[in-house]
């Protein structure tokens, strides 16, 4: 089973792949130094990895264990303006207001045509 993880979540996983099972505190400290993340940001990402089945936590000390090896992970990337940040209607309303949504191939072709015509 392949797990899809975002680049930020991969940063968390790479600590586990490199250093083996470590407490969440350790990951947070390391990534604060490396990426400038605050502790809560790292904890949020660890929780997301747990939800996706990539990390297993155990007590005591919130020990983190990687459930998937590096080879089985695919890097996820959104093609939405903002990935799953909003839920349902809030998402749609905001996206509509900002006027940022995906375009179809035909629409992109039309845009290129506009540039060619006006050039």
């Amino acid at each position: 089973m392949d797990v899809k993880l975002f680049d930020s979540e991969l940063k968390v996983m790479s600590v586990l792949w490199r250093d083996g099972d470590v407490p969440a505190k350790y990951i947070a400290k390391l990534l604060t130094e490396e990426l400038g993340w605050n502790v809560n940001t790292t904890y949020t990402l660890i929780k997301r990895c747990i939800k996706k089945g990539a990390i297993e936590r155990s007590e005591p000390g919130f020990m983190c264990h990687a459930l998937v090896p590096k080879e089985e992970v695919q890097e996820a990337e959104t093609n939405e303006l903002i990935d799953k940040v909003y839920d349902g209607s809030v998402d749609k309303l905001f996206a509509a207001l900002l006027g940022r949504k995906k375009l179809s191939a035909a629409q992109i072709e039309k845009l290129k045509q506009i540039v060619n015509d006006l050039e």
């Binding site: 093609n79 996206a95 949504k101 179809s104």
Partner: peptide
């Protein structure tokens, strides 16, 4: 926009 959209036929006319 092209990198972003991939191949989705969905689009609101507004953003278009």
């Amino acid at each position: 926009e092209e990198t972003r959209s991939g191949l989705t036929p969905l689009c609101s006319s507004f953003s278009k």
